[in-house]
């Protein structure tokens, strides 16, 4: 079994949003929408400040509330790597999953179905990296199998301090941020 995840080095990330454009072109995300985005968190007061810049997206949680609440099974966990996907032909657009996601990672596509990050599973299945990872000029993003202790992502997690987003929400997110 594999468990896909991402490890993102916040030291390297400059928040340029190349990941966002790459996702938009790769996946034909409609204008005015995005599947991934940048968050900047600044702490402190002038002039003693620190800032974390993160590229964020669906966390492909191990305990995905969006999947649990879906009335039709459109939101589901893919057999490969535990990736959370939406089958658009099964989605009725009830928006329960939007409300269930603490990361606000989902949106309603203008055509009516719910859309979100797929970890570019269509690329991963061809042996490619997700589009956002493959374009990042700072090489801050790493994608791989969290269940494989020898994978780059596992080794990074083993060797460096990291955190995930809102672990207290109980969703068991699979994207980690190196700090």
């Amino acid at each position: 079994m594999s468990r896909y995840g991402m490890v993102i080095d916040t030291h390297r990330c400059v928040g340029c949003m190349d990941c966002v454009v790459a996702c938009k072109t790769e996946n034909h995300v409609p204008e005015g929408y995005c599947r991934d985005w940048i968050t900047e968190v600044t702490r402190g007061e002038f002039p003693t400040l620190r800032m974390e810049i993160r590229t964020e997206r669906c966390n492909h949680c191990d305990n995905p509330p969006c999947v649990h609440c879906c009335p039709t099974g459109a939101s589901h966990v893919h057999e490969r790597g535990g990736v959370v996907l939406v089958t658009k032909e099964e989605c009725i657009g009830c928006k329960a999953c939007l409300a269930a996601c603490p990361y606000d990672a989902r949106f309603v596509h203008p055509e009516g179905y719910v859309d979100k990050c797929t970890f570019c599973i269509h690329r991963v299945e061809q042996g490619l990296l997700p589009a956002c990872v493959s374009v990042c000029p700072t090489h801050c993003m790493h994608f791989g199998d969290l269940d494989d202790p020898l994978s780059e992502v596992s080794r990074l997690l083993a060797s460096r301090a990291h955190h995930a987003l809102l672990p207290e929400a109980g969703t068991k997110p699979c994207i980690y941020y190196l700090t």
Binding site: G32, C34, W37, T42
Partner: peptide
């Protein structure tokens, strides 16, 4: 003091 800026403008979300 925490300033959070989310660069995302999805309808219904932001």
């Amino acid at each position: 003091m925490i300033e959070t800026t989310i660069h995302r403008q999805n309808p219904m979300i932001d």
